[in-house]
Write a protein that binds this DNA or RNA. Structure first.
Length: 592
RNA sequence: GGUCCGGUAGCUCAGUUGGAUAGAGCAUCAGCCUUCUAAGCUGAGGGUCAUUGGUUCGAAUCCAAUCCGGAUCACCA
């Protein structure tokens, strides 16, 4: 049990014995004691004063005395300032935490919950390469899945590939018009970029045609519909739906180019999936649901045949679920897919990592599922995240300000190489080791930069800041880990018996108090679906360790006892840093 | 216009769910490498927590109103 809960429980027991009243954890708070006061943890007494009709001093003294007398092993002293009861926890407690966990690889992991959680993330369109926004999604999705797993849940990582629709046909048409048979191989271009270029070409051509039509006297709206290239695209979509062989063939080929490109990038950033759904297989799902909804009178059919749900009573709008021509819309497909996920995996919870522009859509999805009485409705959770913007404003593909994922990764890797070469600490590395290190550092920097922020907030991506390897960054933490490992290569912690009764210096104690909190942070990150808590926490650990490192020598410690103690502290710190970073999808090097 | 989200140091962000004198990093300034990796450490300056009112022992945190920014409200996905 975490120390905070232990204190709370001890206080509840003491209060019961002292005053015969039963309190719960919600009735009062335990906080970490502010550094300017003596003590480690603080019981805030204010909320207890009234029910017990006690003055802060009287209650503090009685409770403090009772706690220290009955838990002499745990608390060594107390003091009261205003309504705050500050308790000092015995050094021996922190040392026992250290000894019990220094080489415990499952430290911080939760017990098996026997529940299954599906995490849908990434979900790209197959008409253009991945960009910075996708990276935030991928890092978030991967990390939250790892965190959920660490808390003892079974996880299924999944991805729904948007591989059909008008946007795909646009690239296809442009390729037919302009490529004269070119392929990624023939042009030596990464497949997703190759296809993305034709998507851009489509838009250029489309724009040109619309302008020409407007000059010829057509209204803007009509011109947008009548442009030949757009009409060809619409026709292609119909042909695709009809399964016309040459269209299907082109579609399959172009998608295969994109997948080859995606695979490369996914491999590079570490994204992986247990199950991939393709929209071309799922877009017809949900039709059954429409029938069910009608018979349950959750949906209503209008005169023209279209089917709707009225959500005005819930503060939303009327929403269409099936077109008058009988085809299903986006939301219906999603209901169908949700159903399929549930049937295939019997999941207890389904997390969707999707941008906040779809908040409304996800709200509607869950609400409809609830109204239909579907068993998985309550398990739907939208992990909504804000847009990534540049210091100059939003990324706009039309203005060419979109930050391409592959380009960014290349650039970061170059910076990592340059900085590593400048420092010259790993000159003995082989070319292969160096390559691996540059990748580790650059990806660590990028992932940490994107994950350290609360997902719900939109964030500014400052290119200069993101390649800074000092301060609140991934490389700072990686560097701290490498420093620890450098010590542990010289000597390992071995004799835990001689540190049992040793005393702790302030920085040693502070570090142990923070390390003890690791399991609580992992749990919180899981409950709040927020890896940034973990990122912040690891940073704090690294920072405290670095202070400790400068202040106290390990190898030249004052005594053998101190040396062993610090070696154990090094072990545990390294484990927590490596384990925590792993949950963010970030590797930590042995040397850098 | 309706709904939802955000507003904390010059910039980027934390703030343990209502607790003590609001914290980090970057940037600026001043120090620290003959001592386990200086991608580090120590210190300084920098704040009307958007505004106003309310709730109470106590508010950046909860409530209300206002201001600013964003998203969304398609027979697109």
């Amino acid at each position: 049990m975490a120390i905070q809960q232990q204190i709370q429980q001890a206080a509840i027991d003491s209060l019961e014995k002292l005053y015969g009243k039963t309190f719960t954890a919600k009735d009062f708070q335990i906080n970490k004691t502010k550094p300017e006061f003596a003590g480690d943890y603080t019981i805030v007494l204010f909320s207890l004063l009234k029910p017990l009709s006690k003055s802060p001093d009287a209650l503090g003294n009685e409770l403090g005395k009772h706690l220290t007398e009955n838990h002499a092993q745990m608390f060594t002293s107390f003091n009261i300032i205003k309504g705050f009861l500050n308790l000092t926890v015995a050094d021996s407690y922190w040392i026992s935490v250290l000894i019990n966990n220094y080489n415990n690889t499952s430290f911080g992991r939760g017990e098996a919950k026997h529940k299954k959680v599906m995490i849908e993330y990434s979900s790209p369109n197959t008409n253009k390469p991945l960009h910075l926004g996708h990276l935030r999604n991928n890092f978030l999705g991967w990390s939250i899945a790892a965190i959920i797993k660490a808390n003892g849940y079974d996880t299924v990582k999944t991805c729904i590939v948007n591989d059909r629709g008008v946007h795909i046909c646009k690239s296809m048409i442009a390729w037919q018009l302009f490529a004269s048979g070119a392929t990624p191989q023939s042009t030596n271009t990464k497949g997703d970029h190759f296809v993305g270029d034709y998507y851009v070409k489509f838009n250029d051509e489309y724009k040109k045609q619309v302008e020409e039509l407007i000059e010829g006297g057509m209204k803007k709206e009509d011109a947008e519909k009548e442009a030949p290239i757009m009409k060809a695209t619409q026709q292609m979509l119909l042909d695709w739906e009809a399964g016309k062989p040459e269209v299907m063939e082109l579609w399959k080929e172009m998608n295969s180019w994109v997948y080859a490109g995606f695979d490369e990038t996914y491999k590079r950033i570490g994204s992986d999936f247990d199950k991939i759904y393709y929209e071309s297989n799922t877009y017809l799902l949900g039709k059954k649901t429409v029938q069910e909804g009608l018979s349950k009178h959750v949906f209503i059919q209008k005169e023209d045949g279209s089917v709707w749900i009225d959500l005005t009573a819930d503060g939303l709008d009327e929403k269409i679920v099936q077109r008058k021509d009988g085809t299903s819309v986006y939301i219906t497909q999603d209901i169908g897919l949700a159903q399929q996920k549930y049937e295939e995996y019997k999941i207890d919870q389904s997390i969707y990592v999707i941008g906040d522009e779809q908040n409304y859509h996800m709200k509607v999805l869950q609400l409809i599922c609830k109204k239909l009485g579907l068993p998985y409705a309550d398990g739907i959770y939208h992990l909504s995240y804000g847009m990534v913007e540049l210091p100059t404003g939003k990324m706009k593909s039309r203005e060419g300000t979109v930050v391409d994922a592959d380009d960014l990764l290349d650039e970061m890797e170059n910076v990592a190489r340059k900085k590593t070469e400048d420092l010259g600490k790993v000159k003995d590395f082989t070319a292969e080791e160096l390559k691996e290190l540059y990748k580790t550092i650059s990806l660590g920097a990028l992932k940490f930069y994107l994950l350290r922020v609360d997902p719900i907030k939109k964030m500014i991506f400052n290119p200069e800041e993101s390649i800074d390897f000092h301060g609140y960054t991934g490389p700072f933490i990686q560097y701290t880990h490498a420093r620890i490992k450098s010590i542990l290569r010289k000597e390992k912690a071995q004799d835990s018996s001689i540190i049992q009764g040793t005393g702790l210096l302030p920085l040693e104690k502070e570090l142990l108090i923070e390390l003890e909190n690791y399991p609580t942070v992992i749990e919180q990150a899981c409950n709040e679906h927020d890896p940034s808590h973990l990122a912040n926490y690891i940073y704090t650990i690294a920072k405290t360790y670095n202070s400790f490192y400068t202040e106290h020598s390990v190898m030249k410690a004052e005594s053998e006892e101190k040396k062993q103690l610090r070696l154990f502290i090094c072990e545990l710190t390294a484990n927590v840093i490596a384990g925590g970073m792993q949950l963010l999808g970030i590797k930590v090097p042995e040397r850098m």
